[in-house]
Amino acid sequence: MSWHKIYGLSLRHIYLIRNSFPRILDLIYWPSVQVFLWGFISEFFTINSSYYNNTIGVILTAAILYDFLFRSSISYNMMFLEEIWSRNFSNLFIAPIKISEIIAALTMTAIFRTLIGLVPAVLVAIPLFGVSIFKLGIPLIFLLIALYIFGISLGLLVTAGLLRFGPSFENIAWASLFFLAPLGCIYYPIEILPSALQVVAKGLPLVHIFEEMRNILINQTVNSLEIFKSILISFIYFVFGVIIFYGAYYGAKIKGTLINIGE
């Protein structure tokens, strides 16, 4: 892999953000709205729920972590969609750049986009609601890694669909995370799900991430095995996403969609 080329492709997206104030505002706006909304809900539950009454901000922390996942995945999809919308697709794919370099560039730039939106929201939550995700301590880093890998994996699967089926797959890009959210047990323990769905949910890293987040905040203990599991499962999804992406690329070459995808 050439870092020079990865940097070149990342630069395209960094310039795009840097050139447009409304784009930056848009990146910051939605995570901040989420923090306000879930901040007030969190306060309400803290006062009125026996489950949450000992730990202020479990829901808000969950909302922030889920938004991190959501933003990283959407950032990935958005950058790919930008190439389609700008009709730049063929230029990109006739440049001497490997698929692995495209994946690496999108992965690196997605974190940049995600943090632009999320850092202000995380900082706003501290004085406004007295909630800091940093209370999760060192495990926070590993939980974020697991969330990011899974977010990127979902991004890869959706972009593979865009590559194979064209812009008509765009709606799936927006719907993908909402589909997984109920099974992710973001705001409630896994026991709430019917037993059959619990089996399915355990195959997602989200359950392990959010169960562990609640465990740390409510029980003040850290279960390293759960964190390890969440990273491992996320990584398996990532490998699966890469394989599907390569398959979609070769499929698109056979179908001829690389040359007319924006049309």
């Binding site: 630069l11 395209r12 310039y15 795009l16 050139n19 447009s20 930008e82 190439e83 700008s86 009709r87 730049n88 697709f89 063929s90 230029n91 049309e263």
Partner: peptide
């Protein structure tokens, strides 16, 4: 029929 990113300057 193939364009360059519109929101980037020519130099970029």
């Amino acid at each position: 029929y193939i364009e360059l990113p519109k929101k980037l300057t020519v130099r970029q």
